[in-house]
């Protein structure tokens, strides 16, 4: 089928202001939006710039605003978008060039929530694994799926308001550790999340949940964090 692809363009070395360019392509409906971007870059305009790597939704490089919704370009097919497609960079992060945004504030927020396993107790005497029941493991399974693509955080109005707001992706990571029975730093993390840039500024808009390409129930996870803060309980 014939598709029209309208792409946000900005080259800081040439342009004073951003603009859109429209390309008309033939594409089967099974093509990924990433395939279309590659076709434009390969044969129409080599300067078109975007990030990509795995091309099947596990590396998190190519989160973009596609027809107004945050999605991974490699997990969105022409079949899903129809023939008129608009591709724009994520909102709330500075555009560096075309579809590439500055990810630093996003990763800085991630690093704020102690995004690593903390357990300073001695290892089991036999040197083997710390035991964990199937149920305890299932408790945080959902939030282990995050690929840090930033689709959630950059769909959040609170983040648009201020990039120092930690945002849903950082909360998802915090949740993954807070509810891991083996981790010992839940209270520290809950304290960090209770500060000004923490979960209090989540207004349950659900944009993050809608945007997540891994289908993580983010708003629910944030709710569980809030509940743990209020009750002091982790179960």
């Amino acid at each position: 089928m014939q598709v029209t692809l309208k792409i946000f363009r900005f080259n800081p070395e040439v342009d004073k202001k951003w603009h859109y360019e429209t390309y008309t392509l033939d594409a089967p409906e099974t093509d990924r939006i990433l395939d279309l971007l590659e076709k434009v870059k390969g044969h129409v305009d080599g300067t078109l710039s975007f990030r990509r790597s795995c091309a099947h939704g596990v590396c998190g490089s190519d989160a973009l605003r596609i027809n107004g919704r945050n999605q991974l370009a490699c997990k969105t097919l022409v079949r899903d978008t129809g023939a008129k497609i608009t591709v724009e960079p994520l909102l709330g992060l500075k555009v560096i060039k075309d579809l590439i945004v500055d990810m630093k504030p996003f990763f800085d927020n991630y690093k704020t929530v102690l995004p690593y396993f903390i357990n300073d107790s001695p290892l089991p005497a036999d040197g083997k694994e710390r035991l964990q029941t199937i149920e305890q493991r299932a408790r945080f399974d959902e939030t282990t799926k995050c690929v840090l693509c930033a689709a959630c955080t950059t769909s959040c109005p609170s983040f648009w308001g201020s990039e120092t707001y930690l945002g849903p992706a950082a909360f998802v990571t915090a949740h993954r550790f807070i509810f891991d029975s083996r981790d010992e730093a839940a209270s520290e993390r809950l304290h960090i999340l209770s500060e000004t840039n923490g979960v209090a500024r989540c207004h349950t808009v659900y944009n993050c949940t809608m945007a997540c390409p891994r289908e993580i129930q983010i708003t629910k996870a944030i709710g569980e964090i809030k509940l743990a803060m209020i009750t002091g309980k982790l179960d």
Partner: peptide
């Protein structure tokens, strides 16, 4: 020990 969330057996 670094925290990797392996799936578990019934014995944990």
């Amino acid at each position: 020990h670094m925290g990797l969330p392996f799936d578990r057996t019934p014995e944990g």
